[in-house]
Structure formats: structure tokens, C-alpha cells
Write a protein that binds this DNA or RNA. Structure first.
Lengths: 192, 192
DNA sequence: AATTATACTTAACAAATGATAAAAAATAAA
DNA sequence: TTTATTTTTTATCATTTGTTAAGTATAATT
């Protein structure tokens, strides 16, 4: 049940059994069916999720168009952070792309953990650091690489995502239209 | 001396005087002349900086070309995070674009603070959260906006940067060549 | 001041991506 | 299975941005 979460956290900050025991009562389980929402527009994000199974996408409504800013790989933390932090209505929408098994923690309980255990506070910091570094790399990719290179790298790094996530979301994630992605895939097919 | 730093931190996490007193001995001051390096390629980043005066840019060498991934606004934290976290040689280079007054903290001392004071650990987490949110917005801008819009928004948000940072760095930061930025600025000049 | 180096601009052409519209394919619903 | 809906692909043309090369302006050095 908790195996993947434990492994993920332990890799960042080794915790003793007391620290884990304190956390378990706060960890709830949530199953989402495909297309279910984890956070809807205007919601105040109360939970942070760890994706045990399935894929979530984070998107915005931008002039009636859905802009996918993130597709969560397996075993990562996901929430609408601006809303979660400041308890304001969320402009980010989080939806299940496939059926999902999530572990979720309520913000209030996470605060309790954070304030009681310096090591849980540290986990929070380390998770954010890693997410920040990932995001910086993505900016680097936007600056230096063409959409084709970004696509190929994504294929290499997250092949599983391509098996489960519609191409239109992937296109948006890569910063191009689905038509451009289609063209790009065609040109790759005839490459070698 | 510490005013801006104190304001910045207090806005995220209010600290008592004991927590500040514990930190002061660790805070060193560093002045950089224009073009001085804060982190050179291959260095192991030992310090995190708070920019009291002046602008730092974070860039990579990408096929002999310098790719500016970040230009630090005033009163922000800057370091080569991947290197700083894992104490590995840095591929990120950090250089002073103008003369700079920095407050810096050594990694070892920061760790001491983090491990001694849950509230300093919390500061670390909150700083990372804010930086992460900023970076996510930047990705959103890359996906949805044209270079012209990104340029205009940057003008609005950081007008001071344009007074002190060469356009070639700004172009790279926006994800375009300096020639494209030039053309773009020209077309804006003749707009109204 | 003259010289050199650096930064910025301009121009013409090439390449990448967007916009629009439509067809084809895949999936879901009846 | 048939029908309807959604997703993906194709194609054409427009726009944005890159590339190359040159010129101009600005700043640094002698």
C-alpha cells in the first residue's frame, strides 16, 4: 500500500518508524475514475496527492482552450500548489487521465506533521527542491530545443505516458498544437 | 544591512529573535564586480546568495553558446541548485551582470540552521515553493504566449532589469535569439 | 582620440510552428 | 452492430522565429 510512497520519501529523507507512524493516520486513499477531477476550477485545493497508479494532468482554461501544463509521472506528488499554499480558488485544474489510485494528505494534517516533525518539514523542502529542479530543466528545454527534440526526449524518459495519455495533452505539454505534433510524428516515422 | 532579507523571509515565515540571532553569524557579505563569477562551470556550489543589489544571471554552455536560463530580480535567492543540493560539479554558471551586493550562506551552515530550527527548515520549504510556482508560470508562458507577449510582460513585471541587463541575455531568457528580439522591439516601436 | 572589441540592429531567406478546414481513425454510446 | 462522438491525421496557407551575414552603435582599451 505505502511501499512506493515510502521508497520515494526515504530516498529524499530517511525517517524513523515514529515519524512514519505519525504520518500513517493522515494518509488517505482515493481512487479516481478516468476524467474524474482531483481539483476543479475555483476549488480550494485541500489535498496533495501521491500517484500510486494512473496519470493526472494539470491544465488551465486559457481563452476556452485547455492548456496542459503538467502530466504527472507515476509516484510523484501533485497538487494545485498556488491554491494549496494560499488557500485561494484554483485556476489550475487537475483531472484523471486514466483510472488512478492516489494517496492523499489533507493540508491541515500536513501542516500538523510539518510543525511537529522537523524531518517531515525537511521532506517538504526536499520534494519542492526536486520539483523545482525538474521544472528548471523543462525551461532549459523550451529555450534550447525544438519541439521535435522535446518530443523525442519525452519518449525516452516517459515511454509509459505515451501508452496512456492522449496525444493532444502531450502536444500541449510540449508547447505545440496537436496538428503540429501529428506532423512531427509523421516526419519522424519517415526518418530512418 | 539585513533589512531586505529580513523582510523577505518574514513575509514567508515569521521568526522570533532567537531564530534570527542564530542565523546572523552564518550570513556573510559578498561584493561582486560586473562579470565576476558566483559559480563557475565545474564548481561545487557552496553558497546560496540573496541579491541585495545588482543582477545575477544563470546560464549554461550549450554547444559553445551561452543559454541564459535565469536573471535574478532584486531580493531573491540564487544558487546553482542541482550542484548545491547534491554537491556535484555545476553545469550551471552564475555570473554578475552588474556590480552586486550579496548576502551569502554556506551550505554547511544552512544545514546547521535547518537541522536546529524547524522554522528555518520551513523557510527553506517556503522559498522553494514560491520559486517552483514562479517557474511553473514561466512554463505556462512558454506554452501559451508568443515571444512578443513574453517580452511585454517581462517589461511590465521587471522594468528595472531592462535598465541594467544586456538585451542578448534577455533574449535568451525569453527563449529567442537576440536578432529576433531586435526585430520584435522594432515592430513594437511602430505599433501605436 | 584612435582603435579594438562588444552589443545591437537590419535584411533576406529558411525552417518551424500556428490556424483553419476537412478527412480518417479510434472510441464511446445507443 | 450501428451511430455518434472524440481523437488523430492531413493539407494548405499564414505567421513566427531561426540562420546567416552584414552593418551600425556603443563601450572598453590603448
Amino acid at each position: 500500500m505505502y511501499t512506493d510512497l515510502v521508497n520515494f520519501v526515504e530516498q529524499l529523507v530517511p525517517l524513523n518508524s515514529g515519524e512514519w507512524e505519525a504520518a500513517y493516520p493522515f494518509i488517505e486513499s482515493l481512487e479516481l475514475k478516468r476524467n474524474d477531477f482531483f481539483v476543479e476550477e475555483g476549488d480550494i485545493a485541500q489535498y496533495i496527492a501521491f500517484t500510486r497508479k494512473g496519470y493526472l494532468r494539470v491544465f488551465y482554461n486559457h481563452d476556452g482552450e485547455e492548456i496542459t501544463r503538467d502530466i504527472s509521472p507515476l509516484n510523484t506528488f501533485v497538487t494545485a500548489l498556488p491554491s494549496f499554499i494560499s488557500q485561494t480558488p484554483s485556476f489550475e485544474i487537475i483531472q484523471a487521465v486514466t483510472d488512478c489510485d492516489l494517496l492523499i494528505i489533507h493540508r491541515d494534517n500536513l501542516e500538523l506533521l510539518y510543525n511537529e516533525y522537523i524531518n517531515w518539514q525537511k521532506v517538504g523542502r526536499r520534494v519542492m527542491e526536486e520539483m523545482f529542479v525538474d521544472t528548471q530543466y523543462r525551461i532549459y528545454a523550451f529555450i534550447t530545443q525544438t519541439a521535435e527534440t522535446r518530443y523525442k526526449e519525452m519518449m525516452k524518459r516517459y515511454p509509459d505516458i505515451f501508452l496512456h495519455v492522449p496525444l493532444q495533452y502531450i502536444a500541449s505539454f510540449l508547447g505545440i498544437t496537436s496538428q503540429s505534433l501529428s506532423r512531427l510524428r509523421k516526419s519522424i516515422r519517415f526518418e530512418e
